[in-house]
Nucleic acid binder design. Structure first.
Lengths: 98, 98
DNA sequence: TAAAGTAGTTTATTTTATAAACCAAATAAT
DNA sequence: ATTATTTGGTTTATAAAATAAACTACTTTA
């Protein structure tokens, strides 16, 4: 009855990151940090997990002389997000049983 | 930007339980176990947490000679669920920023 | 009366999330 | 010029959570 929720996305910070990346297509580490309110350490760990799963790409470039970590959503990540939302809807609308 | 998600509800099993109780108004332990696919131990722990928070009531009665644990959603639980869903929507609809 | 099933609880283990400590380079201050 | 300080992170340690395994108690069936 209740389908399992993708544990990678069912996490407050990771879900916020993916949601943000879907709406921006590309974002730098400090921006994500600011928008989510996460600590750098936590964000670093969670970005890693998303990247390892292939949900996002993390590109380490430079902006002038300073390092710049650019994150983007992948097609896999977008699909996983859409699937997650669909699954979650069955939890959120208790009066639409099957 | 991303409001915090109620950690008590942002849990697969607890969310399923609350969702189920909202749609049934009352359910027995074995039924919840079956519907959620949870193990008895896990369910027992999570029901306790929801009860401690005042989101559900857990009434221990008897059905003939056998023990029967009846769970119900409370007004507090219903309100928390509605608030959770509202907050979550901002994560799920990435193209409705503020 | 012994075995098996029902209805759970308690406790231990694993996993996950989070924060604290750390590192390296660049910029600003003295 | 060398010493803070800030920026941009990573690594590691700790705290919290989820989960499963083991256990209890009582009931029904063989």
């Amino acid at each position: 009855m209740f389908k399992p929720l993708d544990p990678l996305l069912h996490s407050e910070l990771r879900l916020a990151v993916v949601s943000l990346l879907i709406s921006t297509e590309e974002a730098e580490f400090p921006f994500i940090k600011e928008q989510t309110g996460a600590t750098a350490g936590n964000l670093s760990v969670q970005l890693d997990k998303l990247a390892t799963a292939g949900y996002i790409t993390v590109e380490k470039t430079f902006k002038g002389k300073r390092p710049c970590t650019l994150c983007r959503i992948t097609p896999t990540g977008l699909k996983a997000f859409e699937q997650y939302v669909e699954t979650l809807r069955e939890y959120l609308n208790p009066n639409s049983q099957e």
